[in-house]
Design a protein around this nucleic acid. Structure first.
Lengths: 340, 340
DNA sequence: ACCGGTTTCGAAACCGGTTTCGATAAAATA
DNA sequence: TATTTTATCGAAACCGGTTTCGAAACCGGT
């Protein structure tokens, strides 16, 4: 592939390359006749500017990085689409990297991105491991926006998050209003902030309604279907079945559901279920799973806009924290039936 | 963000920037002592090479484009991961674009990518619309690899594909071996090659086993859950229920399943179901759905390797067509029970 | 005809690297 | 010791753009 350059155009018209450049940048010191002539011949010759030369000059790559901890669930894909929508409109490209729940890989990804001179990074962290490093980047003026899995410590940049506590509280209250008494929680890894918040919401909802919180009612599960399956299997063997379970996320709830059904238990008659972070599966499985829906697309769009603000306001910007609202999609899996 | 350049290093050591460059490129005309000194101070100063300057020089971007027609199903995400695995190892970045089933958007995406000087493109087409343009690009020496939705006409480049005909044939035969007689097919859009192939496989399997192919038994559905739902609803209303349905893909099969269950039909007792293109949902729904699994990760890896071959063999390469093998995951949804 | 101001253009420097080539010094050879 | 060879380095050109600045051309007004 031979690309046409401004020098080719200049030679063809017997003018200087400065003039060609000016024609494309709408500079004032070029006659409109010649500008149009240049643009026309450029089009005829099939010219398109060399992006690397441009980036080398104006020290701005028009690329941003996106680092996510996993690609398994649809959540991050959907966020990504939101980011793309905003960024492509502004002419930015997105380099997507997966840290695969590893903070070392995450650090490596971020370093690859910065050495590729992206103009900013949108980041959802695998763990709190690298916060100090990210903080130093931010202090140097490098734009970073966090979402979903954000630093627990104070950090001087914009964040997009979901009120996990509040929606876990609502989800639990929903079960309470259905007049379930014995409610368990399948919690996520205690190291993750979102797990903590959701657990806290669960506990506080029970407290508010004067239901005693047994420590045995909170089981640390994990985030995968297999985690939900394993713990449900254990629970059935122990013979200590609850009336309802609020799970840290949909996969955990779905894993539990599969095992319950395998053992012949009915949902929601024998055990009611509520998930978190609406997945496609939630409304497709049988019975459809009640779940908290996060506005994934909006999370992406918001993160993108906040990053653009930081990039464009070279230096002086006010870090914002946007908390987005969710929705509890009530489905069959959690509805108390009149007759047992 | 102020980046350290080779000039900064040169100044710090009071040498020329040529020498610094040579040190990094392992050129022979530099003393090993000075090379090490340079590398050491470069590290101390936090130097990393400007990627745009590099790309401007060696006329190679180390970026490739990936254009897919949709982001809804996991299929393309999984292929993407396979591509990433191979490409990142070789130091390539991937620019991902979604044409959203629109050939205009697809053309726009490809043009954006080429004007960004990607070294090659991996492409799954929304339709056959732009084949002529892609052909001209390939003739100019621009590397393109097609996968999944490939040009039907002969095209002079590498392709990765799945034998849709063969596996549709197998899937249908599986239903026949279960001794279902009245078998319907939910076909995809007739404009798509994969739909055609799968339909042909269905028809030929019936023919082989001397089952007459009624034209009413093939229903053009669409690729979404809602399509499957709509057509199943119609079918139930018409009162002409088959014993088994082979669907063009999992969403169509799942849509059909939902409606059947809603109307109180049992699966597989009343109607058996088989999907295509294994999705996560297939084994999670109730009953688990029999489906043809495509080797998504391998599709991605193979496409990436073929593209690298084209890129590295500047000009003289032999276009390859790799047909990958699948697997029929037989699950409850299609198993004939002894007792009705 | 002369002057001040404006318009329009091109030469040259620059961005941060790579590469060629000539100069110098050190080592090897005659 | 004289000459050739080799090792090591730096100046300068180049990649394809942008930007600055000075020069030339043109304008109307006196």
């Amino acid at each position: 592939m031979k690309y046409v350059t401004i020098i080719d155009i200049a030679k063809a018209l017997n003018i200087s390359k400065s003039s060609v450049s000016k024609a494309f940048n709408n500079r004032s010191d070029i006659k409109s006749d010649t500008r149009e002539l240049i643009l026309r011949t450029a089009k005829e010759m099939g010219y398109s500017p060399n992006p690397f030369a441009k980036r080398l000059m104006n020290q701005c790559s028009f690329q941003i990085g996106l680092v996510v901890p996993e690609f398994i669930n649809a959540f991050f894909h959907e966020v990504m689409i939101g980011i793309q929508e905003v960024m492509f409109e502004k002419g930015y490209q997105i380099l997507i990297m997966n840290s695969n729940e590893s903070s070392e890989k995450e650090l490596e990804n971020v370093k690859t991105l910065t050495s590729n001179m992206v103009d900013g990074i949108i980041l959802s962290m695998a763990s709190q491991e690298n916060v100090a490093y990210y903080s130093s980047l931010i202090d140097k003026g490098f734009p970073i926006v966090f979402f979903n899995r954000i630093p627990t410590k104070q950090i001087n940049t914009s964040k997009v998050l979901f009120d996990d506590y509040k929606w876990a509280f609502f989800a639990t209250e929903h079960l309470i209003y259905q007049s379930f008494k014995k409610i368990f929680h399948f919690a996520g890894p205690s190291s993750m902030a979102i797990s903590k918040q959701r657990k806290l919401g669960f506990i506080d909802a029970l407290k508010k309604h004067k239901i005693s919180v047994d420590e045995k009612s909170i089981i640390e599960t994990g985030l995968l279907i297999s985690d939900g399956q394993r713990e449900m299997e254990k629970l059935i063997n122990s013979g200590n079945l609850p009336e309802a379970i609020f799970a840290v996320n949909d996969p955990a709830a779905i894993g539990a559901m599969k095992i319950l059904k395998k053992h012949g238990y009915k949902i929601p008659e024998d055990v009611a279920l509520v998930g978190f972070t609406e997945s496609k599966l939630a409304e497709l499985i049988d019975p459809p799973l009640t779940s908290v829906a996060q506005p994934t697309n909006e999370i992406g769009r918001t993160a993108a806009k906040l990053l653009l603000e930081q990039i464009e306001s070279k230096g002086i910007f006010v870090p914002q924290t946007v908390i987005l609202n969710g929705q509890l999609n009530v489905r069959e899996s959690s509805i108390k039936l009149n007759e047992k």
